[in-house]
Structure formats: C-alpha cells, structure tokens
C-alpha cells in the first residue's frame, strides 16, 4: 500500500467500527459498565454526528446479523410482551464520554448511567439512526450499480467525542463482508504478520474509501446508500 492510499486512516480520524463499536465502557471509578453495543448517529446540518452510545440487549441483538438479528429481537420481545420499552435500547449521551482510548471512559459512576433511548413514536421524522444499520447497508452508484457494502464509517475529528461534533467523513466500502474487515489490516500499513496481512489484503482487494461528499442520500429503511454522480 502506498501513502496515497485513501484507505489508510489519516491522523485525527476514527474508524467507528474498528475503534469505537464493541469497546468496553468504564466508569469514573474504573468499574466496567458494559460495551458499546451500537452508536447513535444524528443527521443534522447535512452531517451525520455521533450523539450517543446505545447499550443493552435491544442494541446488541440486531447486530448479530441482518437476518438473525430481527428474529432474535422478536423472541426477546415475546419474553416480555407487556413492556413498551422491550425493544428500546439504553442510551448514554455522548457528552458523558470523558475519553476514548482502548476503552471508552465515562465521566461519572456507572450506577444509573444508562437511560432509555427516546422511543420511535416520540420523534417522528427525526433523524436518529444506528451505526449498526449503516454498517449493513449496501452502496449503489448513481447509475444503479451495486458497489458493495459499508464496512466501516470514518469519523473526524477524533479525540473530541464528547463535544458531539464528531461526524462521518467517509465510508469504507467493500464487496466482501465480514472475514477480516474488522481486523484493520486493510487500513493500516505494515501490520504483521506478513502472511495474514497478505491474505486479508487479497480478500479485500476491492475495498475502497468514499468521502461523504459522494453520498447523495442514505435510505435508512431499505438500508441503501445512494451515491451522487461522480463529478471529478
């Protein structure tokens, strides 16, 4: 890979699936408080901003697969049908994040830190989405060509997570799904061992980086990312 390869993550950027999703939450006392089961994204001012961390079974189950996820979630609901909030994930506002290192450090103690995410009906036409949904979306060119799937979402500016200004700057799109896509080999240079790196590079040889400017519209219900005409 050359230095100009846009897949290589520049400084100040954050690959959300690789560096934020599934990380450990730690409270101000160093106690463990769950995982980043999903990330809440909000569309505002033409930007897709990170506004919260979603936790709990209703956030985690849908991420176990595009087909199995909803099925498992339905079973989870049936085990407690009377609860209106059965399928509503818990939410930790992004302003609670003190620091993102190997783990996500929160700025207070864990007891009672998770609150219910606002339900669907309370904000119709609202612009809250889940990173997990975006990661399963397919990408379609302006001429209708299928370009692959979203493997990761690049965010900037990294290190200012709690400010709420961290937003998507681009998508990592590849034809092949999971195996190897989270290992980071396709995006950083000279990560060994050589054999494994070569193998992952070969699997992901079609993987490309698309800046957000090329995205015309994201259809969250159908899970399709539509690209604009290429005006180079």
């Amino acid at each position: 890979m050359s230095h100009e390869d846009p897949l290589v993550r520049p400084d100040g950027c954050l690959d959300a699936a690789l560096q934020l999703l599934d990380r450990q939450l730690v409270d101000s006392e160093g106690r463990l408080a769950g995982k980043v089961d999903d990330v809440e994204l909000t569309e505002a001012d033409d930007e897709l901003r990170v506004t919260g961390i979603l936790v709990g079974v209703p956030a985690w189950l849908p991420r176990t697969g595009p087909r199995q996820g909803p099925w498992w979630l339905e079973w989870w609901r049936r085990l407690g049908v009377t609860r209106a909030d059965r399928t509503t994930p818990g939410r930790i506002g992004i302003e609670r994040v003190a620091e993102l290192v190997q783990e996500v450090r929160l700025d207070r103690e864990r007891d009672g830190i998770v609150q219910l995410a606002p339900g669907e009906e309370e904000h119709t036409g609202d612009s809250r989405h889940r990173l997990g949904d975006l990661l399963e979306s397919s990408v379609t060119g302006a001429d209708g060509d299928a370009l692959g799937h979203v493997l990761d979402v690049r965010m900037a500016p990294a290190g200012e997570l709690s400010s709420g200004r961290v937003h998507a700057v681009g998508l990592v799109v590849g034809r092949v799904g999971r195996p190897g896509s989270l290992m980071g080999y396709e995006r950083s240079e000279d990560q060994g061992p050589a054999v494994l790196a070569a193998l992952v590079h070969r699997i992901h040889r079609d993987t490309t980086y698309l800046p957000m400017e090329r995205v015309a519209r994201i259809d969250w219900d159908e899970r399709v990312v539509h690209l604009a005409d290429e005006r180079s």
Partner: peptide, 16 residues
Amino acid sequence: SGRATFDLVRERLGPR
C-alpha cells in the same frame, strides 16, 4: 492495553 481475551474477540471479530 489492558484488554483481556474476549474483549479482543468481540472487538476484532464483531458481535456475531
């Protein structure tokens, strides 16, 4: 890094 085995399993291989 202070990460134990199954932290890494989930972070690198995804939830499924």
